[in-house]
Design a protein around this nucleic acid. Sequence first.
DNA 1: ACGAAAGTACGATGGCCGTCAAACTTCGAT
DNA 2: ATCGAAGTTTGACGGCCATCGTACTTTCGT
Lengths: 114, 114
Amino acid sequence: MGAMATTRRTGQDRVPPHPDITTITLQQVLEALVDPVRRHIVGELYSARQDLSCGTIDLPVSKSTATHHFNVLREAGLIHQYYAGTSRMNGLRRDEIDAAFPGLLRALVAGRGD
Amino acid sequence: MGAMATTRRTGQDRVPPHPDITTITLQQVLEALVDPVRRHIVGELYSARQDLSCGTIDLPVSKSTATHHFNVLREAGLIHQYYAGTSRMNGLRRDEIDAAFPGLLRALVAGRGD
DNA sequence: ACGAAAGTACGATGGCCGTCAAACTTCGAT
DNA sequence: ATCGAAGTTTGACGGCCATCGTACTTTCGT
């Protein structure tokens, strides 16, 4: 109602909160990575070795569900997200994950056959 | 009412089926190990370095639930089970797991802090 | 200024899974 | 032969989570 009374929210203001990786438990990581769709996302980011927008990774789910999965991954400290135009970019927090859970990421993405 | 017509079922006949480990997918393993109770069981077997009966591992759940968890672990190819008297023994299939999913077991049991 | 593109927010829904209690089975000991 | 110990089986229940459609927001081109 208040005609544009709210401050204009743009660009950087849209970036969601990212957790400190050291506060993440193994339990959280496993709950995030037990889902095949989310593990697929991580696998793509892992082999791409660069940030990817949500759209570039095609998933067997609707857009709203995809958003949900990216959110879970971010909240688990596994990816970082930021905006580039209308696209939301996603990057794997590889080094941090490796530091917090040595060997885990490699063991999971290596699990080819699934 | 065939008086004892059924063949007496004893000892070895009670051992449940164990899957060939190479038929197990990473997805199955993760679904098994995402549960904290089951991961605790695996952790105990891992550090004990010997077979343990269900009773020796104390769990924060009822006996029937414990049975359920051991079953899941067996069906996921992670443990083998056999009877010793009234006790059911459980052994970690460590070498087979390591062969099928290199580095996974170590990464998971190392996750101390949860 | 408009429209399309790329996601997001919000319920609603459906299925799966961890949990338990109660009744039962199997075995060892007395 | 009985009892107790150790698990199992079955059925029921509750909660969580992946999924979707719809409506909405932000940004970029034109």
